[in-house]
């Protein structure tokens, strides 16, 4: 019985040594891992979605390969509604190698407006959950996560239609000038058009018109739309229906009463 016991002892000691040496060297080699997260950049994709890109450089100078390297970005609103999710996956980073990649996440403003239309008109905050996970030595799963928040600037902040100026155009028609103003707080330049439909108090379409808008980021916009309306159809009160058409989003009608 002594020999089997001795063999068990030797085998146990052998596996303990392997386990301890592996664990300690794997833990030690973590210090030789270099992560470099570059400056995050915001741009626009070809299909007019907002693109967040984060350059990541990983240099593995440790003793083991890094497996299943994964970066996930989840952007959600204050209520926790997920707006977008981006994932970057690198199956293996071999020891002694360095990898540079770009982690991308895109936001479709139209999707954003589906959860809350106030994103067009009010500045707010978006929550970002950043998760980085990997397998050290391809067997020990490690995950780091952090919560961030970024300011969302409304592209049509403080959108207002000013006081309508009426001038007589001819015997039957009036010329109505509707001033438009807003501030583009978004991180993209806003170009597109605004269409306004004017309805009188009986909900009858009096006239419609549109104008081209061009507002650089963080700058105010002031413009106007001219309408020619039949004097007979004009009432003191009514409403405007405003439609926005830009490469980033289409929105409307926004109903604004007048009078």
């Amino acid at each position: 019985m002594r020999i089997p016991i001795r063999i068990i002892g030797i085998a146990t000691a052998f596996f303990w040594i392997i386990l301890i040496v592996f664990s300690v060297s794997a833990a030690y080699s973590v210090k030789d891992l270099q992560f470099d997260f570059g400056e995050p950049q915001i741009g626009v994709t070809l299909d007019n979605k907002i693109l967040f890109s984060l350059p990541i450089t990983i240099i593995n100078k440790g003793y083991y390969n890094i497996g299943f390297f994964n970066v996930t970005t989840e952007v959600s609103d204050k209520e926790g509604f997920t707006i977008t999710q981006g994932t970057t996956f690198i199956p293996i980073i071999k020891k002694g190698e360095g990898i540079t990649t770009t982690h991308n996440a895109t936001i479709d403003v139209n999707d954003l407006l589906q959860s809350n239309q106030n994103y067009l008109f009010n500045n707010t905050e978006l929550k970002i959950l950043e998760v980085v996970s990997m397998r050290i030595a391809e067997v020990i799963p490690v995950q780091a996560s952090t919560n961030l928040s970024i300011a969302w600037g409304a592209p049509l902040y403080n959108f207002t239609l000013g006081e309508i100026e009426y001038t007589v155009s001819n015997q039957t028609h009036l010329r109505a000038i509707i001033p438009i103003s807003f501030e583009n707080h978004a991180f993209f330049d806003l170009t597109g058009s605004i269409q306004i439909c004017m309805y009188n108090s009986t909900n009858m379409l009096v006239d419609e018109g549109q104008t081209i808008i061009e507002a650089r980021q963080n700058s105010p916009y002031r413009g106007y739309i001219e309408l020619y309306v039949l004097t007979a159809e004009m009432t003191e009160t009514g409403c405007f229906e405003v439609y926005f058409l830009t490469p980033f989003f289409s929105y409307g009608p926004l109903v604004i009463p007048y009078g």
């Binding site: 386990l19 664990s23 067997v139 020990i140 799963p141 490690v142 780091a144 996560s145 952090t146």
Partner: peptide, 14 residues
């Protein structure tokens, strides 16, 4: 502000 999770279940089992 960074939550770090290490899964050592395999090590623990061995």
């Amino acid at each position: 502000n960074i939550n770090l999770i290490v899964d050592l279940r395999l090590f623990l089992i061995i």
